[in-house]
Computed example of a mutant assay.
Amino acid sequence: MTKQTILGRVAQLAKANINALLDQAEDPQMMLDQLIRDYSNNITEAEQAVASTIGNLRLMEQDHQEDVEAAREWGEKALAASRKADVLRVSGQSADADRFDNLAKVALGRQLQSEKEAKTAEPTIASQTEVVDKLKSGLEQMKSKLTELQAKRDELVARAKSAQAQNQMMDAVKNIDVMDPTSELSRFEDKVRREEAKALGKQELAASSLDAQFEQLDTLSDSAEIETRLAALKSGS
């Protein structure tokens, strides 16, 4: 995966509007689960690409440092050879002096080459450093967005469970509504009232029967009294 592709995906995912996506989703929880998987996978891929880019940058920085150090060392060698040539020339050893001057020139050529290589690498190093900084920033945004996604999912699941519990409670309350004439409680109450009415009927019936018996007893008492009085009349009492 190229740096440009990674940068594009990092930027696209980091700018994703979660709330807008949720509004468009038929199943928000399923969509969030999929987004979390996508983010996690992309973060893993991006981390690998960033690590590779950083590794290449560090190698370039090491090569650049080596070129800078080589240029310094060749400069010191050129200076040493030039001074040696000067000493030899003063002492009349022109041939040896020329040889050391030639060595100084060779060293200066190596110094110039190392400086050019170091200078050529500097723009690339600067560009790669900028890329790495953007990738690191994008990764942090993606991780932050992943945390936001996970929090949204947890919130959504909690709200769904709460709504489900409320619905279950309301269904239970509805099933035991004492004002509902079709409820089991109402039917049981009707049954109790019918039994109570039956008991009242039996009591009333029993009371009527008892009154009739007492009335009959009163009638018998009156008849006996009449017979007694009649007998007394006949006997001349």
Results as ranks from 00 to 15, higher is better:
residue 15 K to S: 12
residue 84 K to Q: 14
residue 137 S to Y: 12
residue 21 L to A: 13
residue 35 L to Q: 08
residue 228 T to W: 08
residue 66 E to M: 00
residue 85 A to H: 02
residue 179 M to Q: 15
residue 156 L to Q: 08
residue 104 A to M: 03
residue 7 L to P: 03
residue 198 K to G: 08
residue 86 D to I: 03
residue 108 L to G: 06
residue 5 T to V: 10
residue 119 K to M: 07
residue 133 D to N: 14
residue 100 F to I: 02
residue 168 Q to N: 15
residue 134 K to G: 10
residue 117 E to M: 03
residue 49 A to T: 04
residue 129 T to G: 15
residue 71 A to K: 01
residue 62 Q to F: 05
residue 3 K to W: 04
residue 86 D to L: 09
residue 96 D to H: 05
residue 144 S to V: 00
residue 23 D to V: 10
residue 189 E to A: 14
residue 84 K to R: 14
residue 86 D to C: 01
residue 22 L to Q: 04
residue 55 G to N: 15
residue 154 D to Y: 02
residue 53 T to E: 14
residue 31 M to F: 12
residue 165 A to W: 09
residue 214 F to R: 13
residue 80 A to I: 03
residue 151 A to W: 06
residue 129 T to W: 02
residue 3 K to Q: 11
residue 22 L to C: 00
residue 182 T to R: 07
residue 89 R to H: 04
residue 33 D to W: 05
residue 217 L to Q: 13
residue 52 S to A: 15
residue 222 D to N: 09
residue 167 N to Y: 10
residue 133 D to Q: 15
residue 34 Q to M: 13
residue 90 V to F: 06
residue 179 M to F: 11
residue 183 S to M: 06
residue 192 V to F: 05
residue 63 D to S: 06
residue 163 A to V: 09
residue 206 A to R: 07
residue 193 R to Y: 07
residue 116 K to N: 09
residue 181 P to A: 06
residue 45 E to P: 01
residue 45 E to Y: 10
residue 164 Q to P: 05
residue 139 L to V: 08
residue 127 S to H: 09
residue 198 K to V: 02
residue 106 V to L: 14
residue 82 S to V: 02
residue 78 A to T: 01
residue 123 P to E: 12
residue 181 P to K: 07
residue 141 Q to K: 13
residue 92 G to T: 04
residue 233 L to G: 00
residue 3 K to N: 13
residue 156 L to Y: 12
residue 24 Q to T: 11
residue 10 V to T: 09
residue 175 N to C: 02
residue 39 Y to E: 02
residue 87 V to M: 09
residue 155 E to C: 03
residue 46 A to H: 00
residue 36 I to Q: 06
residue 151 A to P: 05
residue 231 A to I: 06
residue 131 V to G: 01
residue 122 E to P: 02
residue 105 K to S: 14
residue 232 A to S: 11
residue 198 K to S: 10
residue 41 N to E: 15
residue 100 F to Q: 06
residue 114 S to Y: 04
residue 84 K to A: 11
residue 201 G to C: 01
residue 116 K to L: 06
residue 98 D to I: 09
residue 77 K to F: 07
residue 102 N to Y: 09
residue 18 I to T: 09
residue 148 E to W: 02
residue 220 L to D: 13
residue 100 F to V: 04
residue 150 Q to E: 15
residue 195 E to W: 04
residue 184 E to L: 08
residue 55 G to Q: 07
residue 234 K to L: 08
residue 153 R to E: 10
residue 198 K to E: 15
residue 166 Q to N: 12
residue 132 V to L: 06
residue 220 L to R: 10
residue 144 S to K: 12
residue 187 R to V: 00
residue 186 S to P: 00
residue 143 K to Q: 06
